[in-house]
Amino acid sequence: MTKITMTVNGKSYSGEVEGRTLLVNFLRETLSLTGTHVGCDTSQCGACTVHVNGQNVKSCTMFAIEADGADVTTVEGIAAPDGTLSTVQQAFQDYHGLQCGFCTPGMIMTATKLLENNPKPTEHEVREYLEGNICRCTGYHNIVKAIMAASGQEVTPVAAAE
């Protein structure tokens, strides 16, 4: 067992891990931060996406020891401390960018990073950037719309009854 320390959502945590302990296991099991999900085992679905030292990575494809000393942000660390949703989170609710919610943490982490890197992406750029995040519910339409809206660009309003 190896002792590691990392900052997660602004708080410092230490724990004992095996070599094989994945970052996602450390987050979910040791720290009980179960917002980060595991949806595949081939590093493709992106439900486990977190930020490590400012970069989006798949926490199921990184060992916890590799994040020793790192600054990690998970979906639990995105909203303001008083619970106010981030712009991206709020846009996902406003534009119905989630259904079952399982891929959502990964989508939020990826979308947040996209807009940091590219504050006014085109729709094409949004779709390309989501390549590593699979959603089975929404058909991506409203996810893309939510991200465009979160970037301050105009989108069509949600459906309304006549």
Binding site: S43, T49, V57, K58, E131, G132, N133
Partner: peptide, 9 residues
């Protein structure tokens, strides 16, 4: 290659 998160690792 891969996707943005994969490219970061």
């Amino acid at each position: 290659i891969g996707d943005p998160a994969v490219r970061n690792r």
